[in-house]
Structures are given as structure tokens and as C-alpha cells.
């Protein structure tokens, strides 16, 4: 029995299909990842599953309950870490958790117990009486995770859980999630555009323009890329592409000012490439296939973590400005 079952799910906004007929299933206890660039439809999918949005068509069920017809049941089964913070900044960390416990009708003694334990777990016990307003981004993220887990959900949704975290906090958070998964049977559904994070998933769905373009274990996905990926910059890309085709019979494609091509034996190929290409080669690098190469292979575009970071910064700035205006 799968704990999440999605079939031909569609969400349209006017002409735009944010989610365009996706189908997949997630097994209980699985760590399932959604990998895709900005605007791919990751958040929309989560919102459909967690009953915040009604699908235009298609079906989704969670823990055996239909997301449209039995939203109350679905809500009881899930916990969420939204992409953007959903904490009340004018309450303390502890108050945020108490509010959550009451909404999920935990009895008071249990709630007190769990809140203390969760705060310990995320390392915020000594800050529990502080207003969330005074927390750093990483602390807020950790508090939100503690909150999402407080009612012991069957499925925990994590929408870009490590967004805006420094590498150290990111590492810390992952350690924490893995411990948690070992302790209790819980399904994790996460979205990300960080490759290292996607690598940790049991299975990954690669999503682009609202469609799932590949689904499998990280190993299976990497096998989609035949050999190894060579990236190069040349003095004249426009001339280099036909030259590579002529000389080596390989299709090089251009992406963001760089050329890339798939070869079987990269290390042996590079000297040949430099010697026989009539265009000056400025730089070359060789990559064993990672999910980044998989995405490039499937779509001809890269998911760049740097871009994502820049976007996060912009988003955060916009939000901060809005908050000030209020």
C-alpha cells in the first residue's frame, strides 16, 4: 500500500499548467524527493497534497484518504515545513509550539513533554522564551521542523527545507532528519534544487514545467546519462559545435556560455579533444554523472544552486521590505 498516490494530477492557473498531469506513488517510510528548477511545480504539488489547493483534475490520496473529499483526515496525517516561513514572529518559540499542539488536540501533558523534547532535539531549548522575531533564519527553520513533527505525522512534507541555511546548519538538519527517520516510521516528501540533498533520497522525481520527466533511485537516474560529461569553454562556441560533430561525431550542446557533451571515456577523450579541435579550448572539466548532469541530459538546462541562492536572497529582501512597510 502506498502512503501517497497521485494520478494524473493537474493544477491550472489560467493558461498556465503549474502541475501538468503528474502520477507517482510513495511507499511508507520512503524518503521521496522532488527535484526541479524554479517554477517547476514543486510547491504547487505539495499544496495540492496538503489540501491547501484543489486540483483542476486528477486524483491524489494520502494515507488512504482522498485529498479533496476527506481533507480533514489528510490533515491529521501530515506535517509540513513550508517553503516560506509560517511562524508567528510575535510569539515566542514555545508559544508557537503550544499553539500547534492545541490545533492538533494533543493533550496538555503530552504536549508539554513533546515540546520540551523537540526543542531539545533542534537545539532551541535555551531560546524557547524568546520571540521568534529575534531568531536567525536557521533557528526559524529548525523551530518549524520541530513544530511540523510535534503531532507525529505519518508524512512530513519538506519544501526546500534547507533554503537560506549555511552549509553547517544544512548538515546539522540532515543529521537530525536521518536520526528521526531511524527512530520512527515516517515518510518524508521533500523538494529541493540542491543536488547533494537529492542524492540522499530513496527515490527522486525530476520535475520540469509541471511534468515528471524522470523517476527513480539516484543510481537509476544517473545511469540515464551514458558516460561522463565534459564541460568546455572555447574561443568560439559557434564554430566549436559543428567542428566537434565533424571530428568526433558527438553532439555538443551549449548551456550558459559553456559547451557540454557526453562521452564514454572522459580522461582519454580530453587530450584528443584539445589536439584535434580547430578552435582554441579555454577550459575543460570532466564530471562523473551527478543529478545535475541528469537534469542537463533530460532538459538541456542546468539546475543551478547558485541561482536558487540569489533568488532566495531576493525573496527574503522583498519579504523584509513588506514587513517593514506594515
Amino acid at each position: 500500500m502506498s502512503i501517497i498516490a497521485v494520478s494524473q494530477l493537474v493544477k491550472r492557473y489560467g493558461d498556465l499548467a503549474a502541475v501538468d498531469g503528474i502520477s507517482f506513488e510513495v511507499a511508507p517510510g520512503e524518503l521521496f524527493g522532488f527535484l526541479g528548477p524554479n517554477g517547476a511545480g514543486k510547491t504547487t504539488t505539495i499544496h495540492l497534497l496538503c489540501t491547501l489547493l484543489t486540483p483542476t483534475s486528477g486524483r491524489a490520496s494520502l494515507a488512504g484518504y482522498d485529498c479533496v473529499r476527506e481533507p480533514h483526515r489528510v490533515r491529521e496525517a501530515i506535517g509540513l515545513l513550508f517553503q516560506d516561513t509560517t511562524l508567528d514572529h510575535d510569539l515566542t518559540a514555545w508559544e508557537n509550539l503550544v499553539f500547534h499542539a492545541a490545533l492538533y488536540n494533543l493533550d496538555r501533558a503530552t504536549a508539554r513533554d513533546r515540546i520540551a523534547r523537540m526543542l531539545d532535539l533542534v537545539g532551541l531549548a535555551d531560546r524557547q522564551r524568546d520571540l521568534v522575531r529575534k531568531f536567525s533564519g536557521g533557528m526559524k527553520r529548525r523551530l518549524e521542523i520541530a513544530r511540523g513533527l510535534l503531532h507525529y505525522p505519518k508524512v512530513l512534507f519538506l519544501d526546500e527545507p534547507t533554503i537560506g541555511l549555511d552549509p553547517q546548519s544544512r548538515h546539522h538538519l540532515w543529521g537530525f532528519l536521518h536520526t528521526l527517520r531511524k527512530q520512527r516510521e515516517m515518510t518524508l516528501f521533500m523538494t529541493t534544487h540542491y543536488m547533494e540533498e537529492a542524492e540522499q533520497c530513496d527515490r527522486i522525481a525530476v520535475i520540469d514545467h509541471g511534468r515528471i520527466i524522470a523517476l527513480g533511485t539516484p543510481g537509476e537516474l544517473k545511469r540515464l546519462v551514458k558516460g561522463e560529461m565534459i564541460y568546455l569553454t572555447t574561443a568560439d562556441n559557434a564554430r566549436a559545435v559543428p567542428a566537434i560533430r565533424e571530428v568526433f561525431g558527438l553532439d555538443a550542446r551549449e548551456e550558459g556560455g559553456r559547451l557540454y557533451l557526453e562521452v564514454d571515456e572522459g580522461e582519454a577523450f580530453i587530450p584528443l579533444l584539445i589536439r584535434r579541435l580547430p578552435v582554441a579550448v579555454l577550459s575543460v572539466s570532466l564530471h562523473k554523472p551527478t543529478l545535475n548532469e541528469v537534469f542537463l541530459h533530460l532538459t538541456g538546462r542546468a539546475i543551478r544552486a547558485e541561482e536558487a541562492d540569489a533568488l532566495d536572497v531576493a525573496r527574503e529582501a522583498v519579504r523584509a521590505r513588506r514587513r517593514r512597510d506594515v
Binding site: 496538503c50 489540501t51 491547501l52 480533514h72 483526515r73 490533515r75 491529521e76 501530515i78 509540513l80 513550508f82 509560517t86 511562524l87 500547534h100 490545533l103 492538533y104 488536540n105 513544530r147
Partner: peptide, 8 residues
């Protein structure tokens, strides 16, 4: 509001 709306 999302925190409230996804609660049962």
C-alpha cells in the same frame, strides 16, 4: 494562515 489551514 497556512499553519492554521492545514491543521485538522
Amino acid at each position: 494562515l497556512k499553519e492554521i489551514l492545514v491543521a485538522p
